[in-house]
């Protein structure tokens, strides 16, 4: 009995050590803000297979479009650090400006747009030349970043100004400012670039805009039984590629809302871990992962069944999550 479990343990350790050398399986990367690490989750086994140090206060995380590079905002090191996905070793730092919180990678992978929360600016970085292309003045406490899939518009949300700033990616000029409810946190476009969705944490709402006219198409509110309305605080979001569904992480309400993206009707609320923050889906849109800051875990949602199938312990205060195929 003893021997068998020891053997199991040994083979487990072997697998753990071997993992980075193996061909890349479907993998999720989770930033642990209070541990200065990233947890690597194998999405076949739904187990953490590695944890590695990345730098101080990691928050925003994303992959390059070719899935070879992992970008991590290490806010207190004032940089976006770039890691080799194969080896999980740091390659170089990008000039992000001070205190970058989160960022978005352009569809072509040639640029990164990042929000510098203490300086009220958005920094545009050339990822190949590794230099700053532009810095754009935005509102107070820039936070969420999004880019339209056609690459034409970048969005920044400013938390205290309460606006979504529409940035033309050619001229780097702000072309429109849309007022939204208190503390806009995150934004995303539909795959056809026709609608923009913005979450307002303290306002407790999601605003949907038409990207041609900048008109507000809808404002979504959430009514979650047994939770005081002001504890329902939408933060992270995920929009399905067919434009049918939208998912919202509701922060301290500890639920993910599933919304019909055509009628804007809330279809379901799924109980996840505590202080649910960001969302990411597998490319086939079968699994949705949530980062849960206070409970220090990741909830795995079966998107078809709309059920939470597993919770995976990660580091302290998981913030962001990125998935590659």
């Amino acid at each position: 009995m003893m021997k068998a479990s020891l053997l199991l343990l040994k083979s487990g350790l072997m697998a753990l050590a071997m993992f980075p050398l193996l061909a890349q399986a479907l993998t999720a990367y989770v930033t642990n803000e209070k541990d200065d690490t990233v947890s690597v989750i194998d999405l076949d086994s739904l187990e953490v297979t590695a944890t590695f140090e990345v730098g101080q206060r990691p928050r925003g995380v994303a992959l390059s479009p070719d899935n070879k590079l992992l970008y991590v905002c290490v806010s207190d090191d004032n940089t976006i650090r770039v890691f080799d996905v194969e080896t999980l070793k740091p390659l170089y730092d990008l000039p992000s400006g001070e205190n970058p919180e989160t960022f978005v990678v352009s569809p072509a992978g040639d640029r990164i747009y990042t929000s510098n929360e203490s300086d009220n600016i958005v920094t545009v970085i050339d990822t190949l030349e590794r230099k700053v292309l532009a810095q754009i003045d935005v509102g107070v406490e820039p936070e969420g970043m999004a880019i339209s899939p056609d690459g034409k518009v970048a969005i920044n949300t400013s938390e205290t100004t309460n606006m979504a700033h529409w940035i033309d990616t050619e001229s780097f000029e702000i072309v429109e400012n849309s007022l939204v409810d208190q503390r806009p946190r995150d934004a995303a476009f539909d795959l056809d670039s026709k609608r923009l969705w913005v979450t307002s944490e303290i306002g407790g709402t999601v605003s949907v805009f038409d990207t041609e006219s900048y008109e507000e198409l809808a404002k979504i509110q959430f009514d979650l039984k047994g939770v005081q309305p002001d504890r329902v605080q939408p933060v992270g979001l995920y929009l399905t590629s067919d434009g049918s569904h939208a998912y919202f992480a509701l922060g301290p309400a500890n639920h993910v809302a599933v919304v019909d993206a055509k009628t804007y009707e809330v279809l379901d609320y799924l109980l996840v871990g505590r202080r649910v923050w960001k969302l990411a889906s597998t490319p086939d849109e079968s699994l949705l992962l949530t980062t849960n800051g206070i409970s220090g875990d990741v909830s795995v949602i079966d998107m078809k069944k709309r059920k939470v199938i597993k919770s995976i312990k990660v580091g302290r205060f998981p913030w962001g999550v990125a998935i590659h195929d």
Binding site: N120, G139, V140, S158, T160, T161, H165, I174, N177
Partner: peptide, 10 residues
């Protein structure tokens, strides 16, 4: 100062 950062846009 915060109001004036927003005021640039309004």
């Amino acid at each position: 100062a915060d109001n004036n950062t927003t005021g640039k846009f309004t």
